[in-house]
């Protein structure tokens, strides 16, 4: 089989805290090819961001990637030197964070932060770097990029700031972009504008994109593949239409049921009962057990992954393979 853009096997990222070990990421597998968009979905605290940071080697202490294999275009990233990792970050692998208000440095101009990103990876003159930064701003639809490049982050609206972050991610035409809930802070209109632009950029540039979100609806609009995360693991994955139309894991089903639908507006949303398990005190066996209507004695053991490389789930009593939405 040909080499994947990104292949993650058995990734575990743990935090050693005074109260015990927080297994934020506990055995995650992911596969991504060029031109593909993978949606990584799950409730808050399920380990999505830490998965993203692990891929970039940016987990802050006391967190640590303790196990697993991360291969980027065949290269073992965990074995790569700090120097090599820095050379890849922002260059071949770019990351977009949730709120660029917090992530862009408020005391530096947008241009300064873009130029330094260009110059961190390529020996080019300042004026050449500035020209590339300006072009990138134009490309993501920021009006008057020549003037706006000298503005400070707080002088942009939320949507425009997010475009700046996307422009920064695109500066080096990366092979992989990890976007961590990048549109959560935006209103729906701007969000869908950005989504469709990101979709065509990914296709046109032949990048891989990991789109982290707690919103299965957004992922359904955007992604080719989806991985559903719960308590540090991928509990279900597959092609986006397949997973959304025929979920096999009760948790995925619960996420779908809690989405607001066009035809039952005004009805209360059906939330999944209960809360995500506390990370220091996860139930034995299947971590979803306390919230699961289908749980049985069998679920006191850990469900292994069943299915194929393309479509799999972790559940002893998966849902039937019939369509949910007729």
């Amino acid at each position: 089989m040909s080499e994947h853009l990104l292949e993650v096997r058995g990734l575990r990222t743990w935090f050693e805290t005074p109260k015990g070990t927080v297994k934020a990421v506990d055995g995650v597998d992911l596969t991504l090819n060029r031109g593909e968009i993978l949606g990584l979905v799950g409730e808050s605290g399920s380990g999505k961001s830490i998965t993203g940071f692990s891929l970039l080697g940016l987990v802050d202490p006391p967190g640590k990637v303790v196990e697993g294999d991360i291969r980027f275009q065949g290269e073992d990233l965990r074995a790569a030197s700090a120097r090599r990792q820095r050379a890849l970050r922002g260059n071949r692998i770019a990351m977009i964070f949730q709120d660029p208000m917090m992530t862009l440095n408020p005391v530096l101009r947008i241009g300064t932060q873009m130029i330094e990103t260009v110059q961190a990876h390529e020996k080019v003159s300042k004026s050449e770097a500035r020209r590339r930064a300006r072009d990138a701003l134009g490309m993501v639809g920021i009006p008057h990029p020549e003037e706006r490049i000298d503005a400070y982050p707080h002088e942009f609206s939320g949507g425009m700031r997010q475009r700046v972050a996307i422009a920064i991610a695109l500066l080096h035409k990366p092979d992989l972009i990890i976007a961590d809930e990048p549109t959560t802070a935006l209103d729906v209109t701007i969000q869908s504008q950005i989504l469709s632009e990101v979709q065509s950029l990914t296709r046109d540039l032949g990048m891989g994109l990991i789109w982290i979100s707690h919103d299965l609806g957004v992922v359904g609009q955007l992604a080719n593949k989806v991985a559903v995360m719960y308590a540090g693991r991928i509990v279900e994955r597959g092609a986006v239409d397949d997973v959304l139309d025929r979920p096999r894991h009760p948790y995925t089903r619960g996420l779908l049921d809690s989405l607001p639908m066009e035809n039952d507006r005004g009805q209360p949303l059906r939330q999944i009962p209960g809360n995500a398990p506390p990370p220091l005190n996860r139930p034995e066996g299947c971590p979803f057990r306390p919230r699961c209507a289908r749980a049985s004695e069998a679920c006191l053991a850990e469900p292994a992954e069943t299915g194929t490389a393309a479509r799999a789930w972790r559940c002893f009593h998966p849902l039937e393979q019939t369509g949910v939405f007729a």
Binding site: L58, F97, T103, N105, V107, T117, A120
Partner: peptide
């Protein structure tokens, strides 16, 4: 150092030296 913009600068591949002497220093 724990602020998001430092992590973001690292995610952009900015050197630790520049993070300290520009991003942190100016702040």
């Amino acid at each position: 150092m724990p602020l998001d913009f430092v992590k973001y600068a690292r995610a952009r591949g900015i050197s630790e030296r520049r993070i300290l002497s520009v991003h942190v220093f100016k702040t």
